[in-house]
């Protein structure tokens, strides 16, 4: 599998206290551990098991994922923006890899 690639969509600007919508998508097979390969053996589970979104170091939204989340995990959620700052997104893989992305937002 190619290195998972995250994509996030965050508005560039918001007014103070505004609730914005964030969308995230990451390329990942989300191998469930329920499938058999061509050799007849079960393909070991390898999924993204945790996703977090923080704003200026404060927790905004988290998700614990099980193998029943579809390949290329997609999330849409909201965030209240109190001030200008940076959203940090983190995806944790079963193999220990961590994928991150950051997006700045300006409050006018």
């Amino acid at each position: 599998m190619a290195t998972p690639k995250p994509r996030v969509k965050v508005p560039k600007k918001a007014s103070a206290g505004e609730i914005i919508t964030i969308k995230t998508l990451i390329s990942h097979d989300m191998e469930s551990g329920q499938r058999k390969g061509k050799d007849g053996n079960v393909i070991p589970r390898q999924i993204i098991n945790k996703f977090t979104c923080e704003f200026n170091g404060m927790k905004v939204f988290e998700c614990d994922l099980d193998p029943a989340v579809a390949a290329n995990p997609y999330f849409e959620f909201n965030a209240k923006v109190p001030e200008s700052g940076t959203f940090k997104f983190t995806w944790v893989d079963d193999d220990g890899s961590i994928y991150t992305d950051e997006q700045k937002i300006a409050v006018n």
Binding site: A2, K5, R7, K9, K23, L25, I26, S27, A71, N72, Y74
Partner: peptide, 12 residues
């Protein structure tokens, strides 16, 4: 185009 997972492949 953001929700379309095929766009991940296009970016690749």
């Amino acid at each position: 185009s953001f929700e379309n997972p095929g766009m991940l492949n296009v970016e690749r």
